[in-house]
Design a protein around this nucleic acid. Structure first.
Lengths: 125, 125
DNA sequence: TTTCATGTAACATCAATAGTTATGATTCGC
DNA sequence: GCGAATCATAACTATTGATGTTACATGAAA
């Protein structure tokens, strides 16, 4: 599939698609071919690639909307609050990454198939 | 304490302080006095106010850095991905809010006291 | 009545993300 | 080989949300 077509599906720009797909290529999940009839291909086994791997491949972007203003503040109040929040966020992050690790692209494909069939049935009724 | 003094401590602007403190006042956690010798007072019992309550009082701002582009997309792929992520995020959010509910301002005050004593000892040595 | 505060609206700034344009490099079909 | 299709990438622009600022009104105390 070309970046142009993907961009249309995603409602965005082909360059934006290439930016993200480039990371997935570095991780060996997809490959790209230049020139005529080129575009993107999935190279990995869907049952092996987890959401966790995609997250890692995309540079482990921040999961939480908030974070410490300073990692090592002089202010003792700030240190105290940071410590309390760090602990809670670390637990939540660990759980989130664990769940991401349990969901593979094959799982999503299977769920998609169910949804697809359900929609088709609905149309026939 | 005045908004001006708080702003200096926080390295920000007094109006920004008032914006946030206004929410805490609505929740009954602090009170403000105008005029001479006015400013902000804590009105709640420190052992009763949890981080969860602060979070709620401040309007339950988003905890996660990512979210669904559309809540109810037509696209079946998007629906599939949303469902998978929603589940994981819901679990992580529940855990996070639970932890926030377990931490009170009194807990933070106690931890601060320890850190304060530790710093003092370090200076004496 | 002057001074010190908060309350609040309106505006400005900043940073991060997303989007765009432009150009170069590669591949395939003819 | 030539030209069209496609990715690669740098540079620039636009958008958005959070934050910061200014200005002015209101209220309370000395």
């Amino acid at each position: 599939m070309t970046s142009d077509d993907l961009a249309k599906c995603l409602g965005t720009n082909p360059v934006v698609v290439r930016r993200s797909m480039g990371f997935l290529r570095q991780a060996g999940i997809v490959a790209s071919d230049r020139g005529h009839a080129g575009g993107w291909r999935i190279t990995a086994d869907l049952s092996v690639v987890s959401l966790r791997q995609l997250h890692d491949a995309l540079g482990e972007p921040a999961l939480f909307a908030v974070g410490n203003r300073n990692e090592l503040p002089d202010c003792l109040v700030e240190q105290t609050v940071n410590a309390a929040l760090d602990q809670s966020f670390a637990e939540a992050e660990a759980l989130l990454l664990k769940r991401f690790g349990e969901i593979t692209l094959a799982d999503l494909a299977a769920d998609f198939t169910l949804r697809h069939a359900a929609r088709r049935n609905q149309k026939e009724t």
